[in-house]
Design a protein around this nucleic acid. Structure first.
Lengths: 196, 196
DNA sequence: CCCTTCATGTACCAAATGGTACACTACGAG
DNA sequence: CTCGTAGTGTACCATTTGGTACATGAAGGG
């Protein structure tokens, strides 16, 4: 069985290493040196390099989903509120390196690496489902909630991509603010309240 | 201007190869075989593997900027119009593989690979500048245009990421439509930024 | 106290890697 | 014709690669 002791610990260390040093073109020996073990141990616990990468991808996905949960678990939420919360959480400079790792894995998974691809769809799907469920408690139709959650996620990810590339926090903040303002109080698209 | 003859031709072939086969963990020999040449030739024309990758990244960036130009060159445009046009262009399934390559490179550039990072910022910056210039001809203040262009780009990229992962064209279309509807006709009046 | 099981280190391997040396061709300019 | 220069093929190299074989260690149950 996948003993959560040594293996999990090692996996966390590998993720941290990738977070700092990038995951491109790393040999098992580099990784092992980076986490203070031998490449032999990585093979022992994960079987092969590819399986290691898959485990990393899976763990990173799990972690991002936890971040989502922390945000959407905050009770009531209109689209603009959720997006603002998510942005505040995700734009934290302390998380920058981890976000970079996420996008690096994501990009890699999009291209080939068949074993990683399903995770990506799941990632988004689970996020949408969670939001739909949350919205249901407010009597919001599932289809509407799904569309808005999807858009909110896209805005956040798109701006995060921008922020990580340009480092322009003020500019991306302003863009997110513009979005949230246009969506303030919006639950279903028919009800745009013209209050200021 | 390094001779646009052999080198450029080779570069295009490499990009096409990466588009089809992915760029992760490819050796010079794999690439060479994929484009019908020898790894010796790649070294001859590009000097080293890293320089090859940089050349690829630069060329891909150029290509995406051309895509942008094709969209924003279409005369008048409010935020929702530009976004709709851009989405229609970018969500074309025929471009899927290329977009995947773009995001793979982007993710890789975000992590390490110092020589690639500047390109990313430039990519966004040039897009924003182009939009600001276009908006200026309509008397739209630069700051406002910049914010909206930024948001539009983020929405498009975020939804594209979603589309490529999930393949859910209908869902992403709906999300983009929701966004565009909320922004329809928006130029400035709704976004008075007295402070940031 | 032995036996088994999980964990780890050492040594090794065949294959592949990025890069180089050198010889050769093609060809346009003088 | 000759010469220089750009392009290409062949052969090679030292190093590194992912992966394996085997011995060892530590823990725990019988």
């Amino acid at each position: 069985m996948k003993g959560n002791s040594g293996r999990q610990q090692l996996l966390d260390a590998v993720i941290e290493h990738f977070t700092d040093d990038g995951l491109a073109d790393q040999s098992l020996r580099h990784i092992a040196a980076g986490v203070g073990t031998s490449h032999r141990m990585l093979l022992y616990h994960f079987g092969s390099k590819e399986e290691l990468l898959v485990a990393v991808a899976r763990a990173v996905e799990e972690r991002t989903l936890d971040q989502f949960a922390a945000v959407s678990g905050a009770g009531e939420a209109t689209t603009d509120e959720v997006v603002r919360l998510m942005w505040a959480h995700v734009a934290d400079p302390a998380l920058g390196d981890f976000e970079r790792l996420f996008f690096a894995l994501y990009g890699r998974a999009l291209q080939g690496d068949e074993r990683m691809r399903p995770l990506l769809g799941e990632n988004i799907q689970r996020w949408l489902d969670a939001n739909v469920a949350a919205a249901a408690t407010q009597g919001v139709p599932a289809e509407t909630a799904r569309v808005h959650a999807r858009l909110g996620l896209a805005v956040t990810r798109g701006l995060l991509l921008d922020l990580l590339a340009t480092g322009d926090r003020a500019g991306t903040d302003a863009a997110l603010d513009a979005f949230a303002r246009h969506y303030s109080g919006t639950w279903c698209e028919a009800t745009i309240e013209s209050a200021s």
